[in-house]
Design a protein around this nucleic acid. Structure first.
Length: 619
DNA sequence: TTTAAGTGTCATGAT
DNA sequence: GTATCATGACACTTA
């Protein structure tokens, strides 16, 4: 630019030097125009005009995007731009931004306004339109600065339309003669430049892409105000916008952009608009992204398939998960998986294998036996299930993978010969429900240990019943356990049971009988303990009585001894010798012989006296 | 957390 | 030899 300016101001005096240089270079093939100042100045002006036009065009694009953003507002939740609510006075309000935009764009540079119109003209010619009656571009500056639409035309924020600035709004066809011939020629030259055409077309495409227009086919009932969320505005603006869009815009879209939405889908979109507009935040969002859900909900709307999904091809066809779906899925799936695992892993009852010596751990079966109890559920688990009336049935029914059918049990009843069928039936029903009134009431009324233990016993009893159901054994547990041997064998012989079933039946009978035996044993043990305790008490009483008697006897004996001693002394004191003297107690004592005679025996001469027994004379 | 009681189950011996 | 009974022992649950 500096070089050009210097050349421009070089003056006439330089022309001579140029001529000299040209004359020197003419042999090299250089033309005279290369050194012609006027010619270069003309080229310079042309280039400058091109640059200015390019700047204007870019400025317009920027203004256009600004206007589009002004039409949109950022949704804080989704982080996307959604259209602003429709203005209360759409006509006037909507016109205002158009005028402002146009004024800013056009009147800001009055000197170049004409050129811009010419640019529009050129673009209109570049993108030929079918509606030729409206293709006449407003080339008048006054027309540009004036309101762009006639009053009868509905307001439409043309600035929001991406191709808007590239094409003029519809105006009464201005006389094209107003364009000066020079400028027209210049623009024709500009238009002939392939770079410009390419640039303009690319710019147009960029604009269309960056504004995220769905790019529908606007052939009928077009509403050019739509955006990615176009439906929310359709309802309110539809009356005004049906004929709003200038034909140039429509045609421009139609020509320059391949149609992406067939007309029938467009009508569908418009038909869907009221719903979306009514409840946009929640449902319209889903409706847009899950069109099939809309179809399912609204039976009157059909045929969105595929076409609309051009713009939403990545959207899943099925409706989104609802919390109910998630809960139901997770719960059912989890339990189903668990039950399947338990069944597959533990249905081959190792108990049976152990009792039939199939298991290698038969010698020490203790824990392995319990390991498979109730298909992986501990006793507490089973009890919890039983305490939950609602879940027990479903849980068990799922746990056994529907192998058990109530008919199986119904079948078993007539087979039970001697056990009393009514009793079986009465016992069966509570087992199926696994609850009794006390349980259904939360067994708050029966907190006694005995009742709970009874319930627990019933629960444990039901485990074998569940196993029998799982293996489709057509007998009740009571029948298996309580039938006499002959009846049991007869019953077994009437049914073809496989090995597992036979083993399980034997185990059930063994366990059941052993359980009863253990109960009886413990009962007897308790009775024995009670009897022994009673005997102990009686023995203690006897002991006390005897002790008391003993003491009494001792007392009596002592008393008798005292009396004997008194009597002895009395008798001894009455004894006299031949001289009439009393005997000394230290020298003599009274002794009674076996025949009852009493002898006075001298103490010192005791042995002697004994030896001379005959010498002594009885008293 | 510990403990005692209750219960089911198994192993074993007796019948 | 088998089925059943009786019982000690163990594990588990529950209060």
């Amino acid at each position: 630019m500096m070089m050009e300016m210097e050349v421009m101001h070089s003056g006439q005096q330089d022309m001579e030097l140029i001529d000299i240089l040209w004359k020197q270079d003419i042999d090299l093939g250089a033309r005279r125009e290369v050194y012609d100042y006027n010619h270069r100045q003309k080229e310079h002006e042309l280039r400058r005009q091109r640059e200015l036009e390019e700047e204007k065009r870019q400025h317009l694009v920027l203004e256009q995007e600004k206007a589009l953003l002004a039409e949109l507002e950022l949704d804080e939740e989704t982080g996307e731009y959604i259209p602003r609510p429709p203005p209360s006075a759409p006509l006037q309000v909507a016109v205002a931004p158009l005028e402002v935009t146009q004024n800013v764009s056009f009147t800001g540079e009055d000197g170049d306004a004409m050129s811009f119109d010419e640019c529009l003209q050129l673009l209109a010619e570049t993108f030929p339109v079918e509606n030729t009656e409206n293709t006449s571009v407003c080339l008048d500056t006054t027309a540009v600065s004036a309101p762009m639409m006639p009053p009868e035309q509905p307001a439409l924020p043309l600035a929001t339309l991406s191709p808007g600035p590239l094409l003029p709004p519809p105006t009464p066809s201005p006389p094209p003669q107003r364009m000066s011939l020079d400028l027209e020629q210049a623009w024709m030259e500009l238009l002939s430049l392939p770079e410009l055409q390419q640039c303009l077309s690319m710019q147009m495409e960029d604009t269309l892409e960056t504004t995220t227009y769905p790019l529908p086919n606007i052939t009928e009932e077009q509403n050019p105000s739509y955006t990615f969320y176009p439906m929310s505005n359709l309802t309110d603006r539809e009356p005004n916008s049906l004929n709003v869009c200038p034909a140039e815009f429509m045609n421009t879209f139609e020509v320059s952009v391949p149609s992406m939405v067939p007309p029938d889908n467009l009508s569908l979109i418009k038909a869907k608009a009221p719903q979306l507009n009514d409840k946009f935040p929640a449902e319209s969002f889903c409706d847009i992204f899950y069109p099939n859900a809309i179809l399912e909900e609204s039976s009157g709307q059909h045929g969105l398939e595929g076409n609309e999904s051009n713009a939403m091809s990545d959207i899943p066809n099925k409706p989104p998960f609802t919390p109910v779906d998630i809960y139901s899925l997770s719960a059912g799936d989890a339990f189903d998986r668990r039950s399947k695992e338990n069944l597959t892993a533990e249905l081959p009852d190792s108990d049976s294998g152990i009792s039939s010596n199939i298991s290698p751990n038969a010698s020490s079966p203790g824990k392995s036996l319990y390991g498979d109890e109730s298909f992986g559920y501990s006793d507490s688990d089973m009890e919890e299930m039983d305490h939950n009336p609602g879940s027990v049935e479903s849980d068990y029914s799922e746990m056994f993978l529907l192998n058990f059918q109530p008919d199986d049990l119904q079948q078993a009843i007539p087979l039970s010969a001697p056990m009393g069928q009514p009793q079986q039936q009465q016992e069966k029903k509570p087992k199926q429900h696994k609850t009794d009134p006390a349980e259904e009431n939360g067994h708050n009324n029966a907190p006694f240990t005995k009742d709970k233990q009874k319930k627990r016993s019933e629960v444990r009893l039901s485990r074998d019943g569940q196993r029998a159901k799982a293996l489709k054994i057509p007998f009740t547990v009571d029948m298996i356990i309580n039938l006499p041997v002959d009846d049991f064998n007869e019953m077994m012989s009437k049914h073809q049971l496989n090995e597992a079933q036979l083993a399980l039946v034997r185990d059930i009978r063994r366990r059941g009988k052993n359980k009863v035996a253990a109960q009886n044993c413990r009962k007897r043990k308790m009775e024995n303990i009670v009897g022994l305790e009673s005997n102990l008490d009686s023995l203690k009483d006897e002991k006390a009585r005897l002790l008391e008697e003993k003491s009494q006897n001792i007392t009596n004996l002592k008393e008798m001894k005292q009396q004997l001693n008194s009597l002895y002394l009395e008798v001894f004191g009455m004894l006299r010798d031949e001289k009439g003297n009393s005997y000394s107690p230290s020298d003599y004592s009274l002794q009674q012989s076996t025949d009852g005679n009493v002898f006075l025996v001298p103490r010192i001469k005791k042995t002697f006296i004994k030896s001379e027994d005959s010498v002594l004379s009885p008293l």
